[in-house]
């Protein structure tokens, strides 16, 4: 049951993130990226399995095996990295606003290829 719920939630989160990334407003784009990277983290946690007990103590030979704690360590790393990059992206958005006076992607334009 939990895994179906999480799968649905993950799908929704990725969809929401994608929707935001495609907006014109840079702040929304950054939030979209943040949501996508957070949903990647949730996905990572679910990869450790959801059925087992908390992995504290000695579980040798026990069934069912406890939840894999490694993914949680990975997610911690990923959260820290995501925090740093989101902060950078937000500051960058502010700098873009300072330099261009707008945070609309269309108004910012681009070099075009």
């Amino acid at each position: 049951m939990t895994q179906w719920l999480l799968a649905a939630v993950l799908g929704l989160l990725f969809a929401l993130g994608t929707f935001l990334v495609l907006r014109r407003d840079v702040v929304r784009v950054v939030w979209g990226v943040a949501i996508i990277s957070q949903s990647a983290n949730v996905y990572l946690v679910t990869m450790g399995g959801l059925a087992g007990a908390a992995p504290i103590g000695d579980f040798r030979g026990e069934t069912p095996p406890p939840t894999d704690p490694l993914v949680q360590a990975l997610v911690l790393t990923a959260i820290v990295i995501g925090f740093g990059t989101t902060a950078l992206a937000l500051v960058l958005t502010y700098r873009v606003y300072e330099e261009h006076g707008t945070i609309d992607v269309y108004d910012l334009g681009g070099e075009g290829l």
């Binding site: 990334v21 784009v29 990277s37 949903s39 490694l70 993914v71 990295i81 990059t85 992206a89 910012l108």
Partner: peptide
């Protein structure tokens, strides 16, 4: 700033995708 913005956003998306792939491989 404009160049960096697209560079950052693209690579952040790339990182998220990479994380998903790594989680799946694990």
């Amino acid at each position: 700033t404009r160049a960096a913005l697209s560079y950052v956003v693209l690579n952040l998306l790339g990182s998220a995708v990479m994380l998903v792939a790594i989680g799946g491989l694990y």
